[in-house]
């Protein structure tokens, strides 16, 4: 892997349509390595779709995605993914440790089962997210914040270089949110690139150093200080951002 590459993620001319109308239109996006980036935009703006398109989970109508200059299929091992919590059945018969170990399935490849090494990695990741006491807990008996942390631990043991996270702060309390942010910033300090779908405009400047404003089109993308401006926000959200005071 070329660590001196200038782009961790490079999206060019990306258009995605589920039905006739495009939900992402001609997106260009360059994410430099080692940033903590927030994707911000209203409901239905296409944030989840953008993440999925980068991961190759939805087929774009046009355009191209590169991770460190190579297509996603060649770079799977270095990409970690935290899906939106609501996309899985939390009543599935399994426990916390087992879910976290799923983060190693990609590295294990076909047929090989997780063993002692995977278990140790999973325990370390659970400690990082403060969930080590819950390792044998059935996953249906977790609060939403705990579920979110389990997903985070699963992504951590993927040991990726680029992380894509869909609303990791959804339904977590202030303490957990701080803990997660610290964790994400730690990842960035270690040279990882972290892309996070984020909804709380108030905390963007505190938590992130890059931001992408999205509403079907890419409105703006760049360092928070230059990009997170009231003009850009107005363009992203329409007139509905009165609560954002004097930015």
């Amino acid at each position: 892997m070329d660590t001196k590459a200038t782009k961790a993620i490079e999206v060019t001319d990306l258009t995605v349509a589920y039905q006739e109308t495009p939900v992402l239109w001609d997106i260009d996006l360059d994410v430099p390595p080692g940033v903590l980036l927030a994707i911000v935009g209203p409901n239905g703006a296409g944030k989840t779709t953008l993440i999925k398109a980068i991961l190759g989970l939805v087929r774009p109508a046009a355009g191209n995605v590169l991770i460190y200059n190579k297509p996603y299929a060649a770079q799977r091992r270095i990409v970690g993914y935290v899906p939106q919590r609501g996309t899985v059945d939390w009543d599935f018969p399994t426990n916390v440790l087992d879910v976290v170990m799923m983060g190693r399935y990609g590295a294990l490849g076909w047929i090989r089962r997780p063993g002692t090494k995977e278990r140790e990695l999973a325990m370390l990741a659970l400690q990082k997210v403060g969930m080590e006491d819950y390792k044998t807990r059935q996953i249906s008996q977790l609060s939403s914040g705990q579920q979110q942390r389990v997903f985070l631990a699963r992504a951590l043991i993927q040991d990726a270089t680029v992380y894509l996270m869909d609303e990791p702060f959804q339904g977590v309390d202030a303490t957990t949110e701080r803990a997660i942010v610290t964790l994400l910033q730690e990842l960035r300090e270690n040279g990882k690139t972290v892309v996070v779908v984020h909804h709380d405009l108030q905390t963007v400047t505190d938590y992130f150093d890059w931001v992408t404003l999205l509403n079907i089109r890419r409105i703006a993308s760049g360092p928070v200080d230059d990009t997170f401006t009231s003009d850009n926000l107005r363009e992203t959200y329409g007139g509905r951002i009165a609560f954002m005071k004097n930015r």
Partner: peptide, 22 residues
């Protein structure tokens, strides 16, 4: 039994399974 882990992941979290290349 052979594809135990793959089938489990498919059922629990299809999107994640796809993202890691299954």
């Amino acid at each position: 039994l052979i594809f135990w882990k793959e089938l489990k992941l498919l059922i629990f979290d299809e999107g994640f399974a796809a993202s890691i290349g299954f």
